[in-house]
């Protein structure tokens, strides 16, 4: 008996987590998928009616805006954070004596809640009293910076705050990558008299391809899940000018009482995430097998 127990203890230890994940992740995804095919409104119904919720979703101008915003925000957020992060990493890599302090400064926003970040930037970009007012005070009377309340510009305000928060993290990833490049190759290149910028562009950066991929995955994931930042900075407004899929889903689920729409928008979000993550995980697992 004790021997049987001893043999099966590892499985029994893992079992509760396994069951929990099965129910609360995969079971719940199945539930959401099912409900997205029904006419559920305030309460879930379980009679399948086909793809009407998805039809409604893709016909909805608000969802259109949300997906368009995700595209704008995602692209700008990822590209700017990557460029800024890489630039900072390369600058910090030049034997800077104060590197420790600077790294700490560049990275601290990552420790903050997006709600804090949103609150801070909302105040900084406040048209009446923030940057606009400050620059006008310097004598530029016509200066205007009203992005947070301008429907055509508000999504770019979200990008600014997002980049401020996440670029330091990309810097940390790239810096670790720069440090892991084989020193011998670089020495050899230097002996050959190859200029620094060529060493970076031809040797170091290409060898960091996996880190670019990791950074991209993390940033894309952050962008798709972005919810708190928009809520704190613009509340999705003005109107629904800065709605993202995440805020759309939340509005449908908890203030509009439209569970069918909430479920179908959540499923589309998951599809977008998986379209990015699955190839990545697949390639990761394949690489492991070759080792």
């Amino acid at each position: 008996m004790t021997e049987w127990l001893e043999r099966h203890i590892p499985k029994m230890v893992l079992a509760p987590s396994f069951i929990a994940i099965l129910v609360f992740v995969y079971g719940f995804i199945a539930w959401t998928a099912w409900v997205s095919l029904t006419r559920s409104k305030l309460l879930p119904k379980y009679e399948i009616k086909g793809f009407i919720q998805y039809d409604r979703l893709f016909d909805s101008p608000r969802w259109d805006t949300a997906m368009g915003n995700l595209f704008i925000f995602g692209t700008l957020f990822i590209v700017t954070s990557m460029v800024l992060g890489l630039l900072l990493a390369i600058l910090l890599d030049q034997k800077v004596r104060t590197e420790g302090v600077l790294r700490t400064i560049y990275l601290y926003p990552m420790a903050l809640s997006m709600i804090v970040t949103g609150t801070a930037w909302k105040w900084i970009m406040n048209p009446g009293l923030g940057i606009e007012n400050m620059v006008r005070g310097w004598g530029f009377e016509n200066f205007s910076f009203d992005w947070v309340i301008n429907p055509d510009r508000a999504i770019y305000a979200v990008v600014i705050a997002g980049v401020w928060q996440a670029s330091g993290f990309v810097m940390a990833l790239f810096l670790a990558g720069l440090r892991s490049v084989d020193g011998e190759i670089i020495k050899a290149a230097q002996v050959d008299g190859i200029p620094s910028y060529r060493i970076y562009s031809a040797i170091i950066i290409p060898s960091m391809a996996p880190i670019f991929l990791s950074a991209f995955i993390v940033l894309a994931h952050l962008a798709i899940k972005s919810f708190d930042l928009v809520i704190a900075l613009t509340g999705g407004g003005p109107g629904y000018a800065t709605d993202l899929p995440a805020t759309y889903m939340y509005a449908m689920a908890f203030s509009r009482g439209d569970i069918g729409q909430a479920a179908s928008s959540a499923m589309v979000m998951m599809a977008v995430v998986f379209a990015i993550i699955v190839p990545y995980l697949y390639s990761e697992l394949r690489v492991k097998k070759h080792d």
Partner: peptide, 13 residues
């Protein structure tokens, strides 16, 4: 895999 799901998909259930 569970680490990567957007939590919106489990919010309702």
């Amino acid at each position: 895999f569970g680490c990567f799901i957007p939590f919106q998909v489990v919010l309702l259930p």
